[in-house]
Structure formats: C-alpha cells, structure tokens
Design a protein around this nucleic acid. Structure first.
Lengths: 553, 553
DNA sequence: GTGTCGGCGCCCGGCCGACAA
DNA sequence: TTGTCGGCCGGGCGCCGACAC
C-alpha cells in the first residue's frame, strides 16, 4: 500500500462526508467493478490545453477497459475540494478472474448525511460580513437554538474536510428575525479564500456532528482544475498584493506535474499496466472512469442529430437532480488520427433552456438518456409549433430510438466510427436539408473490416454534414426530393420512406437512394432492415438498419 | 535551450543585482570553465538528512570534473532568495575541446552596484513598526532628502528581485533626527514574512534605481534550504493560523522533489551525462560546484591536524570579507564505503575566535588557506605560549606546507584516500601523542592500485587517530619515543627525524619506524623523499613523501 | 546614531437593525 | 425569508517623539 511518488498522499476523508461534498451525482465505482477509462477525459483534468506528447499506442486507445483495484477518498488541502484516487488495472492485465462488483464505492444504505449547500452571496463573502443562514439549513442541520433567551445564540463547532474545527457564532436576530453566522465566519472566508459564487456545504451525521465542505465556483470559463487551484492559492480575488504567494504557486510549474502523471496513466493504460488516477469531481466535468455497464448501456442507445435526449443535472443546492431536455445537434467521432474511434464528447446537444443550461461542451453518450417517443412527442401542441430557433429552425421533428441492439462497448473495437453522410440533391437555403447520422462499426470485431453495420437517420435541423469517408464503398445517386417545398417535408419524407417499398439492396433516405453494394447477409430478413421506432400523429417511424459490406482504406 | 521539466523555470534576475544579493563571497563559475562537482555538497542543499538511495556508481564518485555549459541567475519567488542554475557537462562526456574560460560568471569590471545590508532588529520586524535606516544607507543608497522642508520626507520606489516595485515612505524625523521607512514598510515585512534576524539589502545601480533584496536568517540550526523554505511559506513565525497555506506546502511532499532532482543530478554526473544543478548560496553552505583551479590549488596545499589556516568570511553587512584564523584539528576522508576518497568536508578546524566563528561544521580544503610559516610562527611570543585550550592543548606547533607538488585534482582517481596512522608506543594521557595524517593516492592513475604516494606529517595536538586500513601492506615497528616527556616533544621529534639518517626503504616518524615494503622506484632520489617545508626557530621542518608499493583489498 | 518603548489617532473589521425584494 | 445597506463601535495597525545606550 505504498503510495507512488507522483500521487498526493493525504489522509483519507470519510467516504460519506466525501460523497456529500462531491455532490449526489458523483458516483465512484466500487473496487472490483468493471470500468472504462477515457484518456481524453483524464487529460481534461490536467493543466494545459496543449496536448502533451503521447505515444501512438496511447493515441490509438481512446478507452481502456479496466477493473478498479483500489479507491480512496481525499480532500485537497489547498482548496478543500474533494478528490478520489483510483487504481485501475486494465482488463488485459489479467485481473478479470475476480468476481465483478456491481455497486459504487459508497454504500447507499450507509449512514445518511444530512447536508445543505448554499451559494455564497456577495454579502456572505464580503469581508466583515456574516453568513446569512437559510432557515432550512438552521432547522435541519444546526442544533436547535434556545429561543427562550434573547437573542437566541450558540456557538457551532464545525469540522472541515481536513478535520480542522471551526467555531461559528450562530445567532437568530434582526428584524425580521433570521439566522446568521457572525464571529468566526470571516476568518473562515479569508482562510478558505471564498468568494461570492463559491458554495459552502453544511453536513450533519447521525451523531449530530457538523461538518463543512466547500465547492468552488468556476472562476474562469474553460480553466482546468490546476490553473484554477493556483488562482485560489494566489488569492487573486482576495489578497491582491500577495505577490509572493501568487508566484509561489507558479513555481516549479505547478500544474505541470499533474499533467505528467496523467500522461503516465495514459501510457500505462494503453500498455495494459496498472495505473493510478486522481479524479476531482467538478460541475461541468465528466467522469473519465465510468462503470462499464453504464457505458455499454449508453452505447445501446442510439444518439444522432435530432435525437431528443435528457440529462440529469444537480440542482444548485445539490439536494436533488433536475432533468434537462434537449436535442442532439451533431455527433462526431474521429475516424483516424489521434483518438480515432473515441466516443469521448462525441455528442453535441442543444438544450431547450439554453439560458439555464449552456450548450457549451460536447457530451458523452453515457451522460445522456434518449427520451421515449411518448415524451418526445407531446400530444399535438409542441409538435405543431413551427417557430424558428436561433439556428433558423425549430425542432419540429424528433427521431428518438429505443432498443438499439448493437454490440456492447465491451466489444468495441478501435474502429468504432461515426460518419455523417452528406446527401446529394441539396441546394439552396430554403430547401430542406437532408442528412444522415450514423454509427458504423464492425458487426463482428473478430472479422474486421469487411462487415459494417450502418444505421441511418436524419432530420432537417442541422445540415452540418460531412462527406462519407473515402474508401467506404457506398454508392448513392440523387433522386428528386419528394417534398422540397413543404415546411415539414422532413417528416413527410421519412414517412414516405417508411411507407415505400425498396429493394433489399437499396434504401431511399429523404429522396436519395443509397445502394448497398452487397445484399444483406442471408440470415437477416426485412425486419433486420426496418425497425419501428414508434408512432406519432398516427404515423409510424422507422429506423433503417443497413448492413453494408464495406471497406476502409 | 529548453528547460527540463524538473527545474524551476523562473525569469532570470539581473546578474549584478543577483551577485549583490548573494553576497560578495559568492562566485559562480563562468560558462566553459572547468569545475568539480561534489555530490555530497549537492545533497546538503536537499531536503532530508536521510541519505537517499544512490547507485554504487554514484557513491563511488565523490567528485566529478565538469565543464560549465550554462549559467543563469534566478530568485526564489517564495523566499526572494537568489539561486543559480548551472548546467554541467562531465569532462568525460567530450566537451573538453572548448577553450577553457578562466573567469567567473559575473564580470568584476561590470557596472558597480552600491549596496547596504542590515540585519533586521525586532523593532524593524515588528508589525506596526517602521524601519530604522542606518545613516550610511540613507546617505549612500537613497536619493538625498530635501532638508529644507520639515520633516524631510520622500517616497522611495524600490524594486525587488522579481521586478515588483515597493513604495516606502522615507522620513527624517524624531529627536534626535534619524532616517526611517514608515508607510509601506510593514506591508513589505508581512509580505516577505521577514523576522528579526533576517537581512534586507538595499542596492543602487549607476542609474540611481533602487533595489531591495532579502537574506533570510537561518531559523533552525541544521535546517536545509527546503524545510526552511517551507517554514517561511507556512509563515510559522508570523501567521500562526494559516493552516491552509501551512498544509499546502507539505502537499505533494514539497521538498522531496528537489531531493529527487539532486539524486538525478548525482546519477547523471556519475555516468558522465550532462546535468543541471540549482545552487542556493547561503551563509554556512559551501559551494558544491567549484572552479577546478581553486580545488586543484587547494589540493597542493597540505592540510593536516595542526596546520594553521585562515578562511574568508563575509562581514555582517556583506560589504567586505574578514579573515579568520584557526588550526586544523583533524582531517577525515572515508577510505571505503560510500563516498570513499571524498575530500568533501574533510577538514575540521578550531578557530581562534570560536565565539565569533563557531567550529560547527567540517570544511572543504578549498575554503581554507594555509598560513605561511612566517604568519604561523609569530616571532616568539605566541610560539612560546603554552596555555591549554579547550581540548587540553594549545597549538604550539604548526606544520604548514607550501609547494606540495602532488598530482592535480584533475587526475584524481576515485581512490584518493586519507589515512590517519595510529602510532605504536603511545600510552598514557601525559605521554605525547604521536600521529600522522596523510594523503594517499595513486601516483599514476593509469596503473592502479599498485603504487601509492603517501605523505606523512604529525603533531601532538589531536591524538584521535585511526589505524591503517587493512590490506595496505605497510609494516611498522615500535621504537623508543625519542622525547617522551618533553612538553614540545613533537617539535623536537620531527626535528630529530629531519636530522636523522634513515635507509631509503625505511622512514622513522616520531620514534616509530615505518618500513617501506619495496624500495622507492629507481627514478626517485632522496629529494623525492624529503622535502623542506620551512624553518622556524632556526629549525628546519620536513615533509616526508613516501612512495609505497601497497595493495588494498 | 539607533534600538525600544509608550502614546495615540484613525482606519477598518465586524456586529447590528432597517428595509426591500 | 433573506440580500444588501448604512451605522457605529472597538481593537489594532501604524506613526510619532521620548528616552537610553
């Protein structure tokens, strides 16, 4: 159990406190569970945007199936942020004989930690100010005050993640009466270098002990965790003239060391050697170590441009999750070059409430959940609406999918590819754009690269399509667009398509015929090509699954 | 010119300012100059007293001849202490074709920096206190005040080593009048975490720009630079409750990284690979990268127990050097095991003024300068004095040497050894102890380990001798001590010895005959064995150089 | 010439209720 | 219910001359 020299070696933090601090959405896989490790996600936690020098071997492995060998929970002594340390053994390294654990590292049935988080207002964070305690927090977390005395007041002994005890004077005063933390609060704010927008988290265990955690607001958009740590260390926002400390943290290129350890992990992973990762759970970051069943389940769902999805996001007080809905705007998976075949952040989503949930970053398939047809097509009102969104087209048409019986990610080969097919016969702005978004992958990874399964779907919203990759022998021929001028021609088109009879080796998508070079294999029948995906407005929608004999360069 | 990932990468500091901050005694070898690198000295700058795991190869090379490939000057952003970064190429790595530079990295003839250093009093360092400016500093460094106005006052813009400008209110007031820095000083003290005993250094270049540097007092005796840095970082002496910062510096084992880089340098050096060293000049530390000519010159001097030496030490205000005199009490060079044959800190000196210059640490030969016979034997008074020192004997006898024509350190082999020979016939406390201190080294490193050159010298002061190393076939036989009861028998003995006729293969030292196993080689004559080392009190002293055919295990 | 002390003024940290959203 | 503001009070930072060595 000796710690490696490159990893922090801090005393572990109580796992329940840790989980409360990390937030309810953060789940760390249990020891012995199967996971996927995504190097790109790991790099996102590192320092510089500039990609480090990685070996071709590493760049060819965008995900590595692993087994969790060890988990420990810690807190950053500088920022108080919690982080987890995981030791992962790539599955190829022979640790698969162990029985697979199915749970997460923190038992749900364990002792419950009551917690309350509050985003600091400027009054809370101002020097000389106290902390305005929300009534709910005072009632549920803090010990009850003796309201017989006036004013009701008590001293709270609160323990932070490092075990340091802070004393706060908790008083109920003012007109109207409210709960406040006064004496001791300012010292805490200064010591932790809290600013408005940061959150404090008060927790109470079953023994009545009170704890306090911190969640830092993202101060600079796009900043990684280490430049951001340095900002806190430097106290840029609080102690402007503290130039000694400011520079002390740029010393030795703080933030580069973690990058090195990330590179080390990636290289180890790619070579099937055990490795260690440090994970800082933070809002806006995605897990880069994800339970295998979660990833594999997400890969069975079909995500393509136009698909309606939902995503769980923590509420501001982290007490519960909120579901946001949106529409996949595009998907992109590099087909060659670095990280070829990586599903990491392959999905771009336009959210229905972009002011609440910014559309900034691409997402991972396992962060999203496709909506069922029923929820995607609310009775008639929304479906009939034809207002124009910021991109010049509202989501009139949804093509959600269920039951995409692809091979699991467990058998994903490095050539899992995502192709967007550029249709012919597309001209003029008003003309309905026709597109197709597709997953292409080997039907059987043991017999590459002869057989592909391609799933085609399209809508008219996001005509940002690329051409077919060279070397994939799918021939297409333009035909007349069946409903060029109709406002909802897309829907009509796919309806027409669904109703149309096409030869087994030819499929028509939005008025465009795509010929399959070879007929589908004998074992598959017409149902293998056409799959009902649900009904809306008394029309049935289909997904066409096309098995193509193709060849890549 | 890319910086390695392990080394600090801070903007360089003006070399003249750097030198003023480092102190006048610090000289950094110039690029292309020949130097010796001493791993043990390098380790002294590192963190822990526990010796790290070094390879046998490294431990077998207590010094590495190098050529300076690069030098740059920096300042620690945390402590403001200046440090130098040197890139060294071991001479074996083939960089010797370059013409050898002879100077130091900072040209003496360059622009002069006027400087004044002051050790902070408790009043200077106290919070809320000002800084009492010595008159000399105000007159020579600061711009003149306008004494027409009352009180005379001005604002000083002072630049620190990082280029940060600090403003100090300089006022001439009080009864009696004195110069003070008031506004701005406290901020500076707090920011730099200065305490009483630290020094500030005010400098002025020819353009009249004022600079300020810092020299930290050693806060904990024996503390290395990094634990000491951490103390400053943690602000233990000033900001007691700043636990966040305190822990932030123990994070990632700060202080271990430098140790690793030291180990890296040592291993590289031992293998003849280029390496980088960081050198923090500090009082009480010795250079571990020393100009080759300096080392070689010091090796030509003969240092043994009883030799009178002087050493240059900076005055408190660093304006000049003071020479201290003392007597070598013992020398020790490990004969086997780690660092066998290392001259590092082989000399222990008893200083004449132990209250001013503590006798704490062993010193390197090149830090010391043997006093000439003339100064070592002041006419009669001191020589005749026979008071007892703390160790029970005063230095009545001195055996300084000049013109020790050994092979140069440039040809030092790994088996440069120092042996102290335990004489037979020594018994009882009052009996004059007889000893010999010697350098043993190969006469020709191309024909090891057959031929040794041994130089023997002894006095009666420090009878702390070890026996001859096993396996060195020098036979000795006791004989009667020629002057057992004489108070200055040691002097008499060597005089007797010098006057005695001994066979070519036998030498008598202090009444003890040491037989040389084989006669000296044919080419050497008697002058090769006996060398006059000067006269005192009308007696001539000799050094016997004995060439011994020996063999080590 | 300069180290240290006590005096004291003023600035700001910090606790308060008022008030409004 | 709670965010923000102005008031105000008290402690300590920091500037001062008075000594003493």
């Amino acid at each position: 159990m000796s710690s490696s020299t490159s990893s922090p070696d801090f005393p572990p933090v109580d796992s329940r406190i840790w989980r409360a601090c990390a937030g309810s959405s953060v789940r760390i896989p249990a020891v012995n569970s199967r996971v996927y490790y995504f190097p790109q996600g790991h790099l996102e936690q590192s320092s510089s945007a500039s990609s480090p020098a990685l070996s071709p071997i590493a760049l060819s492995r965008p995900y590595v199936a692993c087994v969790v060998a060890a988990v420990s929970f810690h807190a950053d002594p500088l920022t108080d942020e919690v982080f987890a340390r995981l030791v992962l053994h790539p599955s190829s390294s022979g640790g698969e004989a162990l029985p697979e654990a199915r749970g997460y590292a923190v038992d749900e049935e364990d002792e419950k930690i009551a917690s309350f988080a509050k985003v600091l207002t400027s009054s809370d964070a101002n020097n000389g100010g106290g902390f305005s305690v929300p009534r709910f927090c005072a009632d549920t977390i803090f010990p009850p005050l003796n309201y017989q005395i006036d004013p009701p007041v008590q001293n709270l002994e609160v323990t932070d993640v490092h075990g340091v005890v802070w004393t706060f004077r908790h008083i109920y005063r003012g007109t109207p009466r409210r709960h406040l933390l006064t004496t001791g609060w300012s010292k805490f704010v200064n010591n932790k270098k809290l600013v408005a927008g940061d959150s404090v988290l008060f927790m109470k265990n079953s023994g009545g002990d009170i704890f306090v955690g911190i969640r830092r607001a993202t101060r600079v958009p796009g900043a990684d965790c280490f430049t951001w740590r340095n900002q806190i260390a430097a106290g840029k926002t609080k102690i402007e003239e503290d130039s000694v400390l400011k520079e002390s943290f740029s010393r030795n290129g703080r933030g580069r060391v973690p990058l090195e350890s990330v590179v080390k992990a990636i290289e180890h992973a790619a070579r099937g050697m055990p490795f260690e990762v440090i994970y800082y759970p933070r809002a806006g970051w995605s897990d880069f170590v994800v339970r295998a069943d979660v990833v594999e389940a997400s890969m069975k769902s079909y995500l393509a441009a136009g698909v309606r999805v939902k995503m769980a996001v923590e509420t501001e007080d982290t007490s519960r999750m909120t579901w946001f809905q949106g529409t996949v705007s595009s998907t992109a998976m590099p087909e060659n070059g670095p990280w070829a075949g990586s599903p990491w952040r392959m999905v771009q989503v336009i959210w229905d409430e972009p002011d609440v949930l910014p559309n900034s970053r691409s997402l991972n398939p396992w962060q999203l959940e496709p909506l069922s047809i029923q929820s995607a097509f609310p009775p008639t009102k929304k479906f009939r609406a034809s207002g124009l969104g910021p991109d010049g087209g509202d989501a009139e048409l949804y093509f959600p999918l269920r039951g995409f019986a692809s091979s699991t990610l467990g058998h994903l080969s490095p050539s899992l590819l995502n192709y967007n097919i550029s249709p012919a016969g597309m001209q003029g702005a008003r003309q309905d754009a026709i597109g197709a978004s597709s997953f292409l992958h080997y039907a059987d990874e043991n017999t590459p690269p002869k057989m592909f399964t391609a799933d085609f779907l399209g809508n008219k919203m996001f005509p940002n399509y690329k051409s077919l990759p060279a070397g994939l022998n799918i021939e297409s021929s333009p035909s007349e667009n069946l409903s060029t001028d109709s406002p909802n021609s897309g829907r009509s088109s796919i309806a027409d398509l669904a109703a149309q009879k096409v030869p087994a080796n030819c499929i028509q998508l939005f008025g465009q015929f795509i010929y399959i070079e070879k007929p589908v294999e004998s074992g598959s029948d017409d149902d293998g090509l056409k799959e009902s995906i649900g009904t809306a407005n008394a029309e049935e929608y289909y997904l066409y699954r096309v098995v193509v004999h193709g060849r890549r360069n």
